[in-house]
Design a protein around this nucleic acid. Structure first.
Lengths: 198, 198
DNA sequence: TCTTGATGTGATCATCGTTCACATTGTACA
DNA sequence: TGTACAATGTGAACGATGATCACATCAAGA
């Protein structure tokens, strides 16, 4: 029987994975240092060798969730078929990114919430993908193909982000108005955004 | 010296007010039953005579915050001067409501967050004003004055709500993109919404 | 080999939400 | 008027949590 070694070897990764699991399933509020220390099989104080406080763990999870979202957007953009005009394709890319944004929130509401929660502590900025950059690129492409006027280059990302982020937040806040269908309104909002920035 | 009476007299109101204060200043996460019991000058267990659990207090605060927001929207609508055509006025009312929505979030970010936080426990529905209803009324008025086509009556509230709610959330989430000015973008987003539902 | 830095343990502390038996008070009814 | 009863507040617990500290263990280089 292999005895458990005194040192875990990759505690930080294990803690992070356990934390992501808890947050994804039960939300950021259910994240407890002692709890994940238990599931990883380590003493509570060991966690402090890798995260100075619970808030730092939360910030780390939040950062990963943001990267996951950005990757989902990139994937959606790349899955747009290379058919039709460049102009038409830039529009479809933009709309698919918007749809993926809302879809991510619906599929993983707890991760979405965690991604944008205000964190007291800050993660060191790195080179990981950012949702904002993906959005700006898509807008730039639409400008370059003439799908939207260049005068909107500046405001379009904010308008688009507000629209999809608002819809996503509303969808995950249990404040959805009665009598409305999710999928229908996703299409309606994205179409509205297209009109707003056209 | 007036002795403190054994019974507080209006503990529930006092607890609620103290809770609103704490939430407004330090956020919903800083709300502690023991803490507000201390500030009100009562034992921790006394709070349970009025709120079955911390979650119920949170839900109560959330409900009040939602009412505050709705009242702010109504106030903004009523402050639109009765000048110009009915059509023009309906548009201005709608836009001022949107502006007030974002302004509320910026002025009271913690209350705004509390207003839309997912609550496990539910407050009994009452007749207090709801932001959603205010928005729908404004859209209906725009339809009746011909400011927007009646075909958009259904989707316009969702589109508008998504836009302002998204902007408000982004503004209060410390994820605001660099190089953008708050006030400018509020105008840009609201103008975008107007184009989206026109 | 010895030392040093990194990593994990166990005990401990203050705080929190919650519960429970009990105290106090206002009130409706005999 | 007096008395049972319901409402409301107290104080002492319990278990759980985040955090800190002295100490234990281990790996790697001088």
């Amino acid at each position: 029987m292999s005895e458990k070694p005194y040192h875990h070897g990759s505690l930080e990764r294990a803690l992070t994975e356990a934390a992501m699991e808890v947050v994804a399933v039960d939300g950021i509020g259910a994240l407890s240092l002692r709890d994940i220390a238990r599931t990883v099989g380590v003493s509570p104080s060991a966690t402090y060798r890798h995260f100075p406080s619970r808030d730092h763990l939360v910030a780390h999870v939040s950062q990963i969730a943001r990267e996951d979202l950005a990757r989902a957007l990139i994937l959606a953009r790349e899955q747009v078929a290379a058919t039709g005009s460049r102009r038409r394709r830039s529009i479809r890319r933009f709309e698919e990114i918007g749809r993926a944004y809302v879809l991510f929130a619906v599929d993983a509401p707890n991760l979405f919430e965690a991604a944008f929660m205000p964190c007291d502590v800050q993660e060191a900025t790195n080179d990981d993908p950012e949702a904002w950059a993906v959005l700006v690129e898509a807008v730039d492409e639409m400008v370059s193909t003439g799908a939207i006027p260049s005068t909107r280059r500046r405001d379009a990302p904010i308008i688009a982000w507000s629209g999809v982020h608002g819809l996503a937040t509303i969808l995950t806040s249990s404040i959805w108005p009665p009598g409305y269908d999710f999928d229908d309104e996703v299409g309606a909002v994205i179409a509205g955004i297209s009109r707003a920035i056209a």
